[in-house]
């Protein structure tokens, strides 16, 4: 009565694609970071599903490390957003062209 792993993979792929679409179509930089969180959670679902499927704890440990990296990404990303907002007083990504040739 277990759930086949392909269901988890379909769910994970769907959430990951939603995150990719969000990164590409949103203009608000905070919404873009939230979409990155969506993608990280999709990979976490994948890791835990395979960890249960293969009866191997390595997947769960990797989710732990992915969580660490997500926390670091959020801290640095939000600090960058605050610095950008101070300098330009906007968080619309189409107005950030400082590094564009």
């Amino acid at each position: 009565m277990t759930i086949p792993i392909s269901y988890y993979l379909i769910l994970s792929a769907f959430v990951f694609l939603t995150g990719v679409v969000g990164v590409l179509i949103r203009r608000n930089i905070i919404a873009i970071l939230l979409s990155v969180e969506l993608m990280l959670n999709a990979t976490n679902i994948n890791f835990v599903a395979f960890s249960d499927h293969l009866q191997d704890l390595g997947g769960q440990v990797f989710v732990f490390f992915a969580l660490t990296v997500a926390a670091a990404e959020v801290a640095v990303g939000l600090a960058i957003i605050i610095a950008l907002h101070r300098s330009g007083s906007t968080i619309n990504v189409e107005e950030f062209n400082l590094l564009k040739w």
Binding site: L17, V20, V21, L24, I25, R26, R27, N28, A31, V93, E94
Partner: peptide
């Protein structure tokens, strides 16, 4: 006021 990004066509093309 937060409209969608203008590269939504690229998003559709990729996804």
């Amino acid at each position: 006021d937060d409209r969608y990004h203008s590269q939504w066509r690229v998003a559709a093309f990729v996804c």
